[in-house]
Structure formats: structure tokens, C-alpha cells
């Protein structure tokens, strides 16, 4: 150890690397949900009537409202990236904050939606489900809770990333020449949107 030097590691920042890395991560998320969609497809194929019946129980209005607000939030965060590229930092912060609030609204809706199900005695492994429902309906609600629950978890993660993005913006660490954190935050949020675009019709619109 006669030459113990302090070595600084190089800054490996590269906007395109970050973007590609985020896309690759999105692929893993797509396949994570993809596996759930495979399960859904198989069980739906095996129990078409039960899925039909169980789908009636879900509230279309709440589903549609959540779809609308999620789409709007996707637009606002996409606009935030444009704002940053134009150098309008405060506009970007404002748009991300709006997105955050909309995400929160989505979760509140989800909370009430799940709450209604719970009050009807429908939750995974509940007495009511096991004694009164057919196998197909149990599978439908099992998948419903797992898939929308996992989706809600992704909403929360997306919102957590937004907090970091806003902090980076406020401190000037995320700026027009180094936008990756905000861009990736946006990509992740769009992924959440993308998954919902498929969850919505498969659970709420199959009458």
C-alpha cells in the first residue's frame, strides 16, 4: 500500500444511457405484469361466465374516472419534460407537482373502491368469497386485488420518484443539460399509465 492514492471515479453520466437503462427496466416491469396478464387470460378462458359475472360487480364509473385522471397526469408529466427542455424550471416543478396530486387522487379513489369491496365481504381469502362464490369468481377477485394492488404500488413508487425529481429540479441538479431524472420519472409514470390502459378494460369493461 505504499502508493495509497485517493482516486476519484469518473462521472459516467450519459443521457442516452440513462434513457436506455430506464427502458430496459420498463421491459422488466412489462413482463412482470405480462405474467399476470397471462394468468388472467388463462383463467378467463377457463371460467368465461364467472369472469363475466364478477366483472359486473366492479364500478365502471370509478374505473373510468381513474382512467381519465391517470391520462391527464400522463400529459402533465410529459409537459414537464418539455418545460425543462425549454429551461422553464418553475413550470416543470409545477407540472410535476400537479402530476403528484393527481396520482394521490387516483389512490384515494382506489381506496374507496377497495373499501366498498371490503364492506361487501370481498377480500382475498374472505369467508364470503370462499363460501358463496364460484371458483371462477374467486380467481377473478384474487387477480383483481393482486393486479390493481400491484399497480397501486407502482403509483406510489412513481410518486416517490417525483419527489426526488422535484428536489433535483429545485436544487438545480436536474436541468436542461442533465434532464435524465425527470425524463425517467416521466417514462416510469407513463408505464404505470400503460398498464392501467390494459387493466381498465380487462376488469371493468367485460360485461
Amino acid at each position: 500500500m505504499e502508493h495509497a492514492h485517493h482516486v476519484e471515479h469518473p462521472d459516467m453520466y450519459d443521457a442516452e444511457s440513462s434513457k436506455v437503462g430506464m427502458w430496459l427496466f420498463i421491459f422488466t416491469e412489462l413482463l412482470l405484469f405480462g405474467a399476470l396478464f397471462v394468468i388472467y387470460a388463462v383463467y378467463r378462458y377457463m371460467n368465461p361466465d364467472a369472469f363475466h359475472l364478477a366483472g359486473e360487480e366492479l364500478n365502471r364509473v370509478i374505473g373510468t374516472v381513474n382512467t381519465v385522471i391517470l391520462l391527464i397526469s400522463s400529459m402533465t408529466i410529459a409537459m414537464a419534460t418539455t418545460a425543462l427542455q425549454k429551461g422553464h424550471r418553475n413550470v416543470a416543478i409545477g407540472l410535476v407537482s400537479i402530476t403528484f396530486v393527481i396520482g394521490l387522487a387516483f389512490l384515494v379513489n382506489k381506496y374507496f373502491e377497495w373499501g366498498v369491496k371490503f364492506s361487501h365481504g370481498i377480500w382475498p381469502g374472505s369467508e364470503h368469497m370462499i363460501s358463496e362464490m364460484s371458483h371462477g369468481e374467486i380467481l377473478f377477485f384474487g387477480l383483481y386485488f393482486v393486479m390493481t394492488g400491484l399497480h397501486a404500488l407502482h403509483i406510489i413508487i412513481g410518486m416517490a420518484i417525483m419527489v426526488f425529481a422535484v428536489r433535483g429540479l429545485a436544487r438545480g441538479k436536474v436541468h436542461a443539460d442533465r434532464p435524465s431524472l425527470l425524463d425517467n420519472c416521466g417514462l416510469y409514470w407513463h408505464l404505470v399509465d400503460l398498464i392501467w390502459i390494459f387493466l381498465f378494460p380487462l376488469f371493468y369493461l367485460i360485461h
Binding site: 410529459a78 407513463h190 400503460l194 390502459i197 390494459f198 378494460p201 380487462l202
Partner: peptide, 16 residues
């Protein structure tokens, strides 16, 4: 329903 979802996801992927 899936057809509409595919068109929507196409828009999200391409533009957003």
C-alpha cells in the same frame, strides 16, 4: 376493448 387499449398504448408509447 383490447383493440382500443392497443391504439391507446400505441399513442402513449409514441408520443408521451
Amino acid at each position: 376493448a383490447l383493440l382500443f387499449a392497443i391504439v391507446k398504448s400505441y399513442l402513449v408509447l409514441n408520443y408521451f
